[in-house]
Design a protein around this nucleic acid. Structure first.
Lengths: 252, 252
DNA sequence: TCAAAAGTGTTGGAAGTACACCCATGT
DNA sequence: ACATGGGTGTACTTCCAACACTTTTGA
């Protein structure tokens, strides 16, 4: 970074791939994402990832957060940087470099999205032709989501603070698109120390009442190494619970 | 990316963390990296990662490659994007966003670096106070290198085209900083299908001549998912062998 | 009492770890 | 012959996948 890089003519933007679980045509939960319709050239009327320019006074992540709120009114429970896309030909006219984030939101949160003419949910596996290189970006984000689901603990970012093991398993199954053995899944989760029973059970179901679990604090959800502090999961926001230090931006 | 982001005042730069194996004070191989001395403010005279502005006509990776060649005359065998750093306060004066890459080079290549007053190798584990947030960046790059070494096949990027199993194990041991069982290491490598014997052996050693291996083609070294084509390892450059399509930039 | 989901137990195989042991070479 | 690293064999453990089986509820 020696020279005071003028970089005139390069536009710096932030985009986000937002994932939520919603029922598909068959009624089973699967991965969806919201897209916005472009209202100007290039790619007028094509669907695209929500995004926008980086403000001078904002960090990249703060930019992504603000933009998400403005364009989709979503506040993700999980937000992580995905990749920087900067090929010269990704936009036909000017030169764009996009720092792309990916986010997870809960179903309740997802349903709050204002479904106007210009924002719509799409199943992540059957997208139309998107603007720019956004098809590739989504594909990569999906790959990261699925890869990370297998070795990390991000699944609960799709759920509320309390959940049953069947719900948690449902998240895994929806993302990985394969059935999981309930018995083995239970043992893996329990032995990992990631979850702990709340003591409550869900009453009123048609069958044996399942125990409720919560994520055990103190356990990192997604090991990002020295950048761990950057990966922030919003504290479960009960109306009564004050939010504890939501975004500590210090480096370690 | 809807608005034509002016982003005036934000400087876009590319930096690279370059790793090579060199003998440390005790004579054992360990991880080193070259740094350049800053010749202007801010952080005048402090050591920093090599880097520079992104040219309008270059992709991010091409920018990193060119800059590496200009500042250190290095051509890495492995180059991958690490992270985009863009906190508002990382540079005291202007606003910098740095797309950081990490690279691996072979020892022979590393020794060719012009060791002037302004370029010097440092042991990766004992760095001075660097310019900007470069200490954090190196720490993260080291974490990625060590993590990836355990589940991927990047080790041979530190070696030539042919190598013995002891050499390959030495790379792992140097990076992971722990001894590995030669017998088990051999079996893991052989059963993974990543390497194949060339049929030759190393003669002239003091002991039993070890077999030489090469990396089996067709096996991906580092699974980057849909972005695989972006991770490019230079073909082993025999003087006689023409370089085959060194940088295919297409997306998949 | 039956269906269905919650939860437990048991088994077999794959892969990792530790370590004993043989092989081939230069000195 | 012997020291040394190259290379093989083997027992032990740990983890994971499969699946039989018991428990608890609503209907």
């Amino acid at each position: 970074m020696p020279a005071a890089a003028a970089a005139a003519g390069i536009c710096l933007a932030v985009s986000t791939v937002i994932f939520a679980l919603r029922p598909n045509a068959a009624g089973e939960p699967s991965v969806w994402l919201p897209l916005v319709r472009r209202i100007r050239e290039p790619f007028l009327d094509r669907w695209a990832l929500p995004g926008g320019p980086v403000a001078l006074s904002e960090s990249l992540e703060a930019s992504a957060r603000r933009n998400l709120l403005e364009t989709t009114s979503l506040q993700p429970t999980y937000l992580e940087q995905l990749y920087a896309f900067g090929d010269v030909d990704r936009s036909p006219d000017s030169r764009f470099v996009s720092i792309v984030y990916w986010a997870l939101v809960r179903p309740e949160e997802a349903e709050r999205v204002s479904l106007g003419e210009n924002v719509r949910w799409f199943p992540a596996d059957e997208l139309p032709d998107l603007a720019f290189d956004h098809n590739l970006i989504v594909e990569y984000a999906l790959w990261r989501l699925r890869t990370k689901m297998e070795y990390s603990r991000i699944a609960h970012a799709f759920l509320g603070e309390q959940f049953t093991l069947a719900e948690l398993r449902g998240v895994h199954e929806a993302v990985l698109r394969k059935p999981l053995d309930p018995a083995n899944f239970r043992r893996q989760m329990e032995s990992s120390g990631a979850i702990e029973p709340t003591g409550d059970v869900v009453v009123g179901g048609r069958h044996r009442p399942p125990k409720l679990y919560r994520y055990a604090g103190g356990v990192e959800l997604a090991d990002a190494g020295p950048l761990t502090a950057r990966v922030v999961v919003a504290a479960a926001q009960h109306p009564s619970t004050p939010i504890a230090a939501p975004t500590q931006e210090d480096h370690r």
